[in-house]
Design a protein around this nucleic acid. Structure first.
Lengths: 339, 339
DNA sequence: CGTTTTTCGTAAATCGTTTTACAGAACTGG
DNA sequence: CCAGTTCTGTAAAACGATTTACGAAAAACG
């Protein structure tokens, strides 16, 4: 049923090796033979078997991506961005989700490594990054993205999280806010801690009280629940900063539930930038991660290791962009004099 | 560097075939040998090479997914749902995007078929489904999802789009709306036409004028632009129905831009159900597609063909669910007497 | 023109598994 | 205890591509 290289060779009246050379371009083949082979291949609908190809050649045109959650649009947009890069070069992407579980992460990674991919892109589910050893032991080039533990020394690309936090805080401070709430997913994550750090630095410098920190977890439901109970008690804060996209939703949902109006009662700063953010009312001010660029950078890093050019590992930090829309404004009740 | 089955065999003092049998469970192996092999394998960190395995065995534990856009959360949530199903059975998922282009769809499909996957899940980028021939010729089981051309007779799973349209229209008619606008991505898509059909049927039955149809394209920017220019002219319509998630955003964005308030001036019915829809104000009434169930059904369909049980092809149609929130209400200016 | 070099095709080896063919050991039942 | 059957191990073939070794033809050179 399925056509092999030998069928093509027979029909074109050449050897299998020649057919291989025509397709791989590995060695020159006279033009009339190329013609014959090409024709035979399209006639038969030949498509090289990639498993066989990779087994013999030892190199796979496949990159594995392992993320904590395929329902999180940030992760999938990253995958989309990587896919857009690699497709032109004949690579395919194999994806897996660790579902936020460290052991599953290791299991899935082991399975992915069975494909002997050319490279691996991984977003660990926590800072332990317990699958690290397995990954390093495999000798396969890999890039850690988004959640990079501080001790990690290999290739990694993230945004400049401290700066992201700083930009968010500075914008709100400039508007006159003094009482901050930070909605973080989990303080166990290095990127989240860095974003907090950036915010704290700005507030400290201005002599403002340090922000109230709320850990909202990694999905929408727990986020909006925890923020909801918080908001019902608290009256002072006027500036809310989300540190992940789910935190953004949580803040919004509980603000509405509590009857607080945005931006009149409170200002909210979202994280990541999605279409819905400028479709809703008020359109959301947010810190935008340069997803396209992150994907491009990951691929560049990976490719540097593919053609066994021994490129040294590097830590790339890309800048976020503050996009100001209407969910942030000057605090109305600035006169509670909280200092 | 990388450990092969022979290394394990040597260390365990057995033959390669025995190691294979231990891992595949294909033939019984005495327990003491199993023990020795297992130990040797973990000592060496052995992971079977899946390319070699699949080459010899002829069957791949891999399923290929080809979608029009990896940035569309509906498509990625479908992939997430499928991933959740197959991971337990040792399958991996390889993804690709056709970027909405029919020729690219065929090209990407050809590349994916090179992996000789156990099955293919495809969401065609249009009703021509020009990659169909290639797919059928390959002899690999496949399931078409979401966008299924009317003439297609193979395995397919979608929602009941006519019913979805009906549910949306009935809800709004019950609230008292008479003038409808439907924001459709493209009338070239069968699923969109069916949703329209469902809406039209309800309106016709009630003796209401047929809805104004606006094709908004497949991304957010063109959607909000076309709807914006429309809304500035039109005053009569009070009920807006979106037929895709981007259309939902387009309606919302242009309503805000035009200064129309939801649900006081107009009611809006969204499509698909995402977290942001209940985080925003007003929370959106929407037609929810059962993504989890769609994924499960796709996998069931596919699996029916894997173990060469010659299951006959089937067309599955799952029901959508109307989730009523606050973006729909009775029309204020019901007295324009439009009949 | 003779010699050396280059070009380009073929046959066969090879990658790491699974599977087949075979054989000795261990059961079975009478 | 013996013939027949079942277990369970090994050696070698096989999957479909790439790559190597080799040789014939062509090209280059003095």
């Amino acid at each position: 049923m399925v056509i092999s290289i030998k069928d093509v060779a027979k029909r074109a009246g050449v050897s299998a090796g020649t057919v291989s050379n025509v397709f791989s371009g590995n060695r020159a083949v006279k033009s009339d033979l190329v013609e014959r082979v090409r024709r035979a291949a399209t006639d038969l609908g030949y498509q090289p078997d990639r498993a066989a190809s990779q087994l013999r050649a030892g190199k796979a045109r496949i990159v594995a991506a392992l993320v904590p959650d395929l329902n999180n649009p940030f992760f999938t947009s990253l995958i989309a961005s990587i896919e857009a890069r690699v497709r032109g070069e004949g690579y395919d992407i194999i994806v897996a989700s660790s579902h936020g579980d460290a052991e599953e992460e290791t299991r899935r990674l082991a399975a992915l490594l069975g494909w002997r991919p050319a490279g691996v892109v991984i977003i660990p589910c926590n800072d332990d990054f317990s699958s690290r050893e397995l990954l390093m032991g495999s000798g396969i080039p890999f890039v850690v993205a988004d959640r990079v533990p501080s001790y990690f020394e290999g290739d990694a690309v993230t945004v400049d999280n401290v700066d992201a936090g700083r930009q968010a805080a500075e914008h709100l401070v400039a508007l006159g806010h003094a009482r901050f709430v930070v909605a973080a997913s989990s303080m166990k994550l290095q990127n989240i801690r860095e974003r907090c750090e950036g915010i704290a630095a700005v507030l400290a410098k201005q002599g403002l009280p340090s922000p109230t920190l709320i850990e909202v977890g990694l999905d929408f439901d727990t986020a909006s629940e925890r923020l909801g109970t918080f908001m019902e008690g608290e009256q002072q804060a006027t500036a809310f900063i989300a540190l992940t996209n789910f935190a953004t939703l949580g803040i919004l949902a509980s603000a509405h539930k509590t009857g607080l109006s945005v931006p009149d009662d409170i200002s909210v700063m979202g994280f990541d930038d999605y279409s819905w953010m400028h479709a809703v009312k008020p359109p959301l001010t947010a810190i935008r991660q340069p997803v396209e660029e992150i994907g491009r950078t990951i691929w560049n890093r990976l490719r540097g290791h593919l053609d066994d050019e021994g490129e040294p590992p590097a830590r790339e930090r890309l800048l976020c962009e503050l996009v100001v829309r209407a969910s942030t404004g000057a605090p109305k009740t600035a006169g509670v004099s909280s200092a």
